[in-house]
């Protein structure tokens, strides 16, 4: 069908909820009419929360045969902005507003080889692709990375469905993914130029793959990724943002974005995608006390390294002494002195 990008909001009913991994809950929505959902599709959901109605995007993991029931899977964020906690609290019978399946991450046709790479909850975006490629009898492999086995949703079902085409990499079992080895194997294959890599995972994995893909001279258009702009190198924490010219100073708490905080402070901001892709909300960084956690895919690696601009919709700041996610076992403790970012806006 032709791509339909215009959201049609409708009432949907929660018909099933169950945990499918640590902190990951499967939520099945029932629609009045069949919803054609192609691999890579997501739905937008409105979630009532204490801070008003939040809109969140979730990949369609699978659908019932009649197309009326779509399954999502929601990761409960350690620092939930309200969205994931509210989704985890849903019970069968609850009615929500949701869109039809929307497509920003289409699976191509005709590639000689497909590599699907999922990190953590990113499996929800590529599980359907693996199913489609299996049905097409395409040459594909599914690479699934997680921190612990119990945190990896659908692992057993995927192993059953995809056999040797699935490789699981589990950090705490010492089998973590070697990104360079994976990319080397892609680049060394005679079909390298016709290999497509579909990637959904934490921003650090995405950055590593993007950089490695580029360094190996692989075609940029063959690397496809989806980000909902919600993962960074550090856990979110409160920070201060200042705009001297406007005399604005406000605190961005861990549950909101810089864009939201500036809007709440009365600064008229320009934006569009709100997921770190379009670049409209970028601001100039004049001064920084702390470190920037660039979570967008708009700025290049070089631009991010300069720390002279950031995308306010997703990117954040943390105190200079904060350990990176995964560098320590203990959850980060809030810093006594929050980071301060001094910016200029257009």
């Amino acid at each position: 069908m032709a791509a339909d990008h215009t959201p049609r909001w409708q009432d949907v009913t929660v018909v099933d909820t169950r945990d499918v991994a640590d902190r990951i809950r499967r939520v099945v929505l029932r629609y009045d009419a069949p919803q054609p959902a192609r691999a890579g599709a997501h739905v937008d959901v409105e979630i009532p929360s204490g801070e008003g109605v939040l809109t969140r995007s979730y990949s369609v993991v699978d659908a019932s045969d009649d197309g009326r029931e779509l399954a999502l899977s929601v990761h409960l964020s350690a620092t939930s902005r309200g969205g994931s906690a509210a989704m985890h609290a849903l019970a069968p019978g609850a009615v929500l507003r949701a869109t039809q399946p929307l497509q920003n991450f289409p699976l191509g046709v005709g590639a000689a080889r497909y590599v699907l790479l999922a990190g953590g909850i990113g499996i929800t975006a590529v599980a359907g692709m693996a199913r489609t490629l299996a049905a097409r009898r395409a040459d594909y492999e599914l690479v699934y990375v997680g921190r612990t086995r119990p945190a990896m949703a659908y692992l057993d079902a995927l192993a059953l469905a995809h056999g040797d085409r699935l490789s699981a990499h589990v950090d705490d079992e010492g089998t973590g993914l070697d990104v360079d080895a994976l990319l080397d194997s892609i680049a060394a294959d005679p079909r390298a130029a016709a290999t497509e890599l579909y990637l959904c995972g934490p921003i650090r994995l995405m950055d590593a793959v993007r950089r490695g893909w580029e360094n190996r001279g692989l075609p940029a258009t063959n690397l496809r990724f989806e980000t909902f702009g919600n993962s960074g190198a550090w856990a979110p924490q409160d920070f201060i943002v200042r705009i001297p010219r406007l005399g604005v100073q406000t605190r961005v708490d861990a549950n909101s974005t810089m864009l939201e905080a500036l809007e709440a402070a009365g600064v008229e901001m320009m934006f569009d995608c709100r997921k770190g892709e379009c670049g409209l909300c970028q601001v100039a960084v004049l001064d920084l006390d702390g470190r920037l956690d660039h979570r967008d895919v708009f700025l290049s690696a070089d631009e991010k390294a300069q720390d002279s601009r950031l995308c306010a919709c997703v990117s954040r700041a943390v105190a200079a002494d904060t350990p990176r996610i995964g560098d320590v076992d203990a959850p980060p403790t809030p810093p006594s002195e929050p980071a301060v970012v001094t910016i200029e806006v257009t």
């Binding site: 032709a2 791509a3 920003n104 991450f105 289409p106 940029a220 258009t221 496809r224 990724f225 989806e226 980000t227 995608c273 892709e277 379009c278 895919v297 708009f298 700025l299 290049s300 070089d302 631009e303």
Partner: peptide, 10 residues
């Protein structure tokens, strides 16, 4: 410098 990952035409 980057390409928006959503940018495709059918």
């Amino acid at each position: 410098q980057t390409l928006n990952p959503s940018a495709t035409v059918p």
